[in-house]
Design a protein around this nucleic acid. Structure first.
Length: 553
DNA sequence: GAGTTTGAAACT
DNA sequence: CAGTTTCAAACTC
């Protein structure tokens, strides 16, 4: 197994050496409260704070736990530590409550994700505390968070778009990062989203001031940059007026990013200075629906295939998590989340008169399968919608996908789709994916992560069939089962009663994806001994197949 | 740019 | 769980 440890080490150490330390009034809050500091990591190690909290919660009442943990940690690869560190805010953000709750019933979505920071021999068993903001940075962190987090003692909250979780990969340059991180340090806010990191000082100051940034017409802005859907920092350019950007109405909030300069929101609380509010709100929403912040579009993947066919990638195999409920738009406008996500409708959808060009609910073949049919549909759509469609929407033609869905569709990379598998590996086995992969994978395929996380405990024990049933959003189980028919997949219900339907592979797969499971099987190629040691199998297989690396196991 | 439409999210 | 309201994006004019 090839560890890209250099990257990690660099990411970890650079800030410590080169970045001027700025007192983090918030970041070191935990330490300050008790005055206990782990000499080596105290200022940077959130996990330490976490450990302290945990020790206190558990009645240890002393810093011995901290010291031990720090000692242990000091012997670990710093990269691994960092990975733990990046899981944000839980210790600081009322985590105690959660952890307490978790002790009692473990029912809370984040109950079993409290970082177990330094599990000897399995240091990466840091489980993400929450499926929201934290996860979003799984990929990004290797390029950004590490430094940010280490220096500030807090974490960066940022999540790429659910639709385009990969956007940041290309847009974020290391040197940009450096600059922005330093600025962040100056601001002392300690928590920033990528937008901030890339914005200039005025942006930071604006954030600090907490004032809303109203510029030109939001619509203009949105239009101007619409093709990209988001700016490269991940900002959604929301225009919220009443939600305070603390509801899922807010695209930024829903995407797990802070509102930033491009936004035209009012009374915005989705800013670093309201970090606590944001996280608490997220927690609340997650408690209602653990998948609330999961990407809406599930993209089954075939890493190998996509590596070579990335440009041919179509949304055919992807599905909206819950399905749409369109009544009037015929799933031909961006009102439709499926259409917006560049995926076809599925049986999960409750849409009426579905004419989704990416694939109709009734089982019409996806675009790449039936060009003719697609053309007909396009004609139909054009007739019905008249010129209502903008250029982007007219690009429903698969050959024009990148016009309309440059990010959501064409930015797909093998890694992006691999991510769920990786997450699975992380969660189930505790093995930390290679940093190199993480570095590359900026995707916040967070849906799977979240989904899997919820079942991380059962994952190593439960039957696959149950897994598949428990959360149909996770395509892995279907694959794991191997012989399970998608049709037979049991529709799952999300905790909030909303439907979370399984991806429908069987009926709409393109020739390329025929046997749809192949899409995933390559991510997690085989599970011969799932019963015995599922997690390790998954982990090993993940590395083997997805990264073309020799299995470590 | 204002107003309307739309459907998801939130609420009851 | 269904119905209603709220909300903000998408869309139209």
């Amino acid at each position: 197994m090839i560890f890209d440890s250099s990257t990690e080490l660099e990411a970890c150490e650079v800030p410590a050496k080169n970045v001027p330390r700025v007192e983090q009034t918030e970041g070191v809050r935990d330490q300050d409260e008790t005055g206990h500091r782990c000499r080596v990591f105290s200022e940077n190690c959130e996990n330490q704070a976490f450990i302290k909290d945990r020790n206190q919660e558990m009645g240890h009442g002393s810093t011995s736990g901290i010291s031990i943990a720090c000692k242990i940690e000091s012997q670990l690869q710093r990269g691994m530590r960092r990975r733990c560190l990046n899981f944000e805010g839980v210790p600081e953000m009322g985590l105690q409550n959660d952890s307490t709750a978790s002790h009692s019933n473990g029912a809370h979505p984040t109950s079993n994700i409290l970082p177990v920071p330094f599990k000897a021999g399995n240091p990466s068993t840091c489980i993400v505390p929450g499926i929201g903001l934290h996860l979003n940075t799984l990929g990004l962190k290797d390029r950004f968070l590490s430094r940010e987090t280490l220096v500030s003692g807090q974490r960066l909250i940022s999540m790429p778009s659910p639709i385009c979780p990969f956007h940041s990969t290309t847009g974020l340059e290391p040197h940009d990062k450096s600059l922005s991180v330093d600025k962040d340090l100056v601001t002392g806010s300690g928590i920033h989203n990528l937008s901030i990191m890339h914005d200039d000082v005025s942006q930071s100051s604006a954030l600090i001031s907490g004032k809303d940034l109203h510029q030109s017409s939001p619509k203009k802005k949105r239009r101007k940059l619409e093709i990209g859907a988001e700016n490269r920092e991940g900002c959604k350019r929301c225009n919220c007026k009443k939600s305070k950007c603390l509801k899922l109405y807010c695209e930024c909030f829903a995407a797990g990013v802070f509102c930033a300069e491009p936004c035209s929101c009012q009374s915005c609380f989705n800013k670093p200075i309201h970090q606590e509010t944001v996280l608490n709100t997220r927690k609340q929403i997650e408690s209602r629906n653990p998948l609330a912040f999961a990407p809406k579009v599930i993209r089954p993947s075939d890493p190998d295939q996509e590596i070579g066919e990335e440009l041919n990638k179509t949304p055919a195999s992807a599905r909206h998590k819950r399905g749409c409920n369109c009544k009037k738009s015929s799933c031909l406008k961006k009102y439709c989340e499926c259409y917006q996500g560049g995926v076809g409708c599925s049986v999960s959808c409750r849409c009426e008169g579905c004419k989704n060009a990416f694939g109709r609910k009734d089982g019409s073949l996806p675009i790449e399968d039936e060009e003719f049919e697609q053309e007909e549909e396009q004609k139909d759509a054009n007739l019905n919608v008249s010129d209502g469609l903008d250029a982007g929407e007219q690009s429903a033609d698969p050959t024009n996908d990148e016009l309309q869905y440059p990010e959501s569709v064409l930015q797909l990379t093998p890694f992006q789709v691999i991510r769920p598998s990786m997450d699975l590996a992380i969660l189930s086995s505790g093995q930390t994916p290679l940093s190199s992969s993480l570095t590359t994978v900026t995707s916040a395929s967070f849906n799977s992560f979240a989904t899997l996380r919820r079942f991380e405990m059962p994952l190593s024990q439960c039957k696959l069939g149950k897994l598949a049933r428990v959360d149909s959003e996770d395509e892995t189980p279907a694959i794991l089962k191997g012989n399970v028919s998608p049709i037979n997949s049991v529709k799952a219900t999300s905790p909030n009663q909303k439907r979370v339907s399984p991806p429908q592979f069987g009926t709409r797969l393109s020739p390329n994806h025929k046997g749809g499971r192949k899409l995933i099987l390559k991510s997690i190629p085989s599970f011969p001994s799932l019963n015995n040691d599922l997690s390790h199998e998954i982990s090993a297989n993940y590395y083997d197949s997805s990264l073309d690396m020799p299995s470590q196991s």
